Computed example of a mutant assay.
Amino acid sequence: MFTYGPQSPTAYANGPSIVEKQDEWIVAVLNKMRAEGKTRLNANEDAEQEWKKTINTLHGMSLRDKVDGWYMGTNIPGKPREALNYAGGMPLYLKTINEVIDQDFKGFTVT
């Protein structure tokens, strides 16, 4: 698990606000896994592609999507131009990540 990183709302909120909620989510995931006797969690490729699509769609509704810069990864020569931040706001972000737990790790393989 990687907190405060790419494809999260890092550029749209302050660090502690994001990291605290991400850490709470990680603890909830680990608690559920422990209760179910599970030890591994891997994102499914389809879910990864859907998340990427969501990131790009949400970012596409912002003005930042229209310019080059680190928000789009264009400050790195040769890097594909794509959104690096979740632009849907904290409430939608939290709803979305919590649905993963509520829907029995939808989008993940848990063993």
Rank of each mutant, 00 (worst) to 15 (best):
G5I: 13
I55T: 04
S62A: 10
K79N: 15
N98G: 00
N85R: 00
P80K: 15
E45G: 00
L92E: 08
P77V: 03
N14A: 10
N14Q: 08
H59M: 13
D46C: 01
F2R: 11
A35W: 01
Y86D: 00
D46H: 04
A87E: 02
D46N: 08
N85F: 13
P9F: 01
V19K: 01
M90I: 15
N75K: 06
G69A: 09
N14E: 05
E36P: 04
Q22I: 08
I97A: 07
T57F: 08
R81A: 04
T3M: 02
K52R: 09
E36C: 02
E99W: 01
L41H: 03
G60M: 13
K52Y: 07
G78H: 12
G60V: 14
E99D: 13
W70N: 08
M61V: 09
D104T: 05
T54S: 15
A43M: 09
P80S: 15
V29N: 08
I76S: 02
W25Y: 12
V27T: 11
N31H: 09
I18D: 00
E24I: 13
G69E: 04
I55W: 08
L30A: 13
A28Q: 05
T39C: 06
N56D: 14
P6R: 09
E48W: 03
N85Y: 09
N42R: 05
I101V: 13
V110C: 11
T111L: 08
Y93M: 12
W25C: 06
N44T: 10
K52F: 07
D23E: 11
K106Y: 03
E99L: 10
A83L: 14
N56L: 08
N85D: 12
Q22D: 06
A28Y: 01
A43W: 01
Q7G: 00
Q7T: 06
P9C: 10
K53M: 06
R64W: 07
W70Q: 03
W51S: 13
F105D: 00
Q49H: 12
E50H: 09
M72W: 00
L84W: 06
P91F: 11
K21F: 05
N56A: 11
A87H: 12
A13D: 07
N44G: 09
Y12D: 02
G15A: 12
R40D: 12
V29C: 14
V110F: 08
I97D: 06
R64V: 06
E48G: 07
K38T: 02
K21G: 03
T111Y: 07
M72L: 15
R64E: 11
S62C: 11
E36I: 05
M1Y: 14
P91S: 10
Y12V: 06
N14S: 12
P9W: 01
A43C: 06
K53P: 00
E36N: 10
N31P: 00
L58E: 01
Y86K: 03
I26V: 15
T109A: 05
P9Q: 02
K21D: 02
Q103D: 12
K106N: 07
I101T: 07
Q7L: 12
K38I: 05
P91A: 09
K38M: 04
P9Y: 02
N75P: 04
E82C: 10
Y93Q: 11
G69C: 06
K21W: 01
A13G: 04
S8F: 00
V100T: 13
M90T: 15
M1C: 15
M1S: 15
K106S: 07
I97W: 07
D65H: 15
